Simulated assay, not measured.
Amino acid sequence: MRLLHTSDWHVGRTFHGADTLDALADALGAIARIVREHAVDAVLVAGDVYDAAMPSGRHVEALTRALQEIRSAGAEIVLSSGNHDSAARLGANAGFARAGGLHLSTRALEPDSWRIELADEHGPVHVFAVPYLEPVSLRSSLPEAGIASQADAMGWAMDAVRASLAHAPARSVVLAHCFAAGVAEPADDAPRDITAGGLDVVPLSRFDGVDYVALGHLHSRQELSRSVRYSGAPLHYSFKERSPLRGGWLVDLDAAGLADVAWVDLPVPRPLVTIEGELDALLDDASLAGTEGAWLRARLTDRLRPLDAMRRLQRRWPHAAEVQWLGGDDAPAIELRARLARRSDAEVVDDFLRHVRAGVGASEAEAALVRDGLARAAAAEAAQ
């Protein structure tokens, strides 16, 4: 059996305010072509199908067309909800969709609903599409399970998966939308603090006992082990996504389990380019010829902040999306940035509290709230 592992489609997401729907439609259309060219049996989408809990009509229509094209190409589709999705809306009419080869998994509290049974000439393949698991929600619904973190939530889920496999042995694949251990740091799109605030990353050992784990949540591809991987998003949605590649993993299962995993590219309609220097010099830099069609981030080193920098950049680079002024040789600003860089975010907050409260810093309870808030912010940033 051949599977195509994808994730984080984020239908409806913009890039610094620019619409990406046409580019995403091209990328998803390429998935249908991959299905035909590589004889893919099932396409996996590991969460964050939409970018918003209430997608617009045009975004629903775009997703519907993409799913129809993939299904017409010959592959079944297994799709789980992510933290950006409304599980209830995405999972509506799941029973009817399953009859047409589209398997929607959105019920976090119902492990029996996660299992999708596929089959090839070697027998059954059980695909467990685990929806996004919110520890707070699970803790209130399952107080006896002792769930306090993402690691606990995925441990509970994987216990259910292994119990199902013990009852009905088969080759197995798990879809999960979470942070997992093994993500290289200090990558921009990886968590800065993998333990603060209870948002600890899920250890790879949680996934023991299955043949392949298709992860979603990070937007750049990652190979955590031979059998545990992130595919990343089909488009670039942030300058923080360090991988220039977009695509998915072709996963081959033979009679014994995982046989091979290979990367397959999706088209990159607009690459990311970062340039740095003084504005006038950049505008006249002949070596930058050919970058005019890219998403552009400019890091300006002018001694004084240039006027109308974005407008001037967009004359040459119509898709300039971000301008950062680095302050040139402004020594006080450079020293301030260096000093702040040496301090953690929690220390910066504590310094601020001491400043506004006449030398009184954060209490232990306040410090815990700060750490939790910063960890949540880091998690949201990492998922971009």
Rank of each mutant, 00 (worst) to 15 (best):
L4P: 07
H319N: 13
R303D: 15
S225N: 08
S149E: 12
E144R: 02
I275R: 05
P318A: 07
R242E: 14
A321P: 08
V323E: 12
G328I: 11
G216L: 02
S140Q: 14
L67S: 08
D330P: 03
R89Y: 00
D265I: 11
L369Y: 03
R315C: 06
D152V: 09
G248H: 11
A23V: 05
V356N: 06
L138E: 07
E278Y: 04
W249D: 00
W263G: 10
Y230V: 02
L109K: 07
A331G: 08
V11D: 00
S81Q: 03
E381N: 06
E61R: 13
R13S: 07
L165M: 14
F96T: 09
A73K: 10
R33S: 12
M310Q: 04
T301E: 02
A331I: 12
R246T: 11
R36Q: 15
A309R: 02
M158K: 12
D211A: 11
G197D: 07
N83E: 00
P203E: 02
I77S: 02
G100W: 06
H38A: 12
V125H: 10
R246Y: 06
F96E: 11
A382V: 05
D51V: 09
G100P: 03
T14W: 10
A380P: 01
D8G: 13
G12C: 14
L245Y: 07
L44T: 09
E110L: 08
H16I: 01
Q324R: 15
G373A: 15
L313Y: 14
W9R: 06
V348P: 04
D41M: 11
W263K: 06
A23R: 13
G123N: 07
P131E: 04
H355Q: 15
A94L: 04
L67A: 13
G216T: 01
A346V: 12
P135Q: 04
A259F: 11
R115K: 13
A30N: 11
L199S: 08
L4E: 12
W317Y: 05
A148D: 14
L369K: 10
W249Y: 10
W317L: 01
R192N: 15
A129K: 12
A66T: 03
A331Q: 15
A163H: 09
L353C: 14
V174T: 04
G29N: 11
G12P: 10
G257V: 13
E335H: 09
H217F: 00
S243G: 00
Y132S: 00
L215W: 05
V228A: 07
Q324L: 15
G47N: 07
L204D: 03
Q68L: 08
G232S: 05
D211P: 09
L250C: 06
S105Y: 01
D8R: 09
V370F: 02
M154C: 09
L253N: 10
L296V: 09
Q324M: 13
R337M: 14
A62D: 01
S220V: 02
A286L: 14
E241P: 09
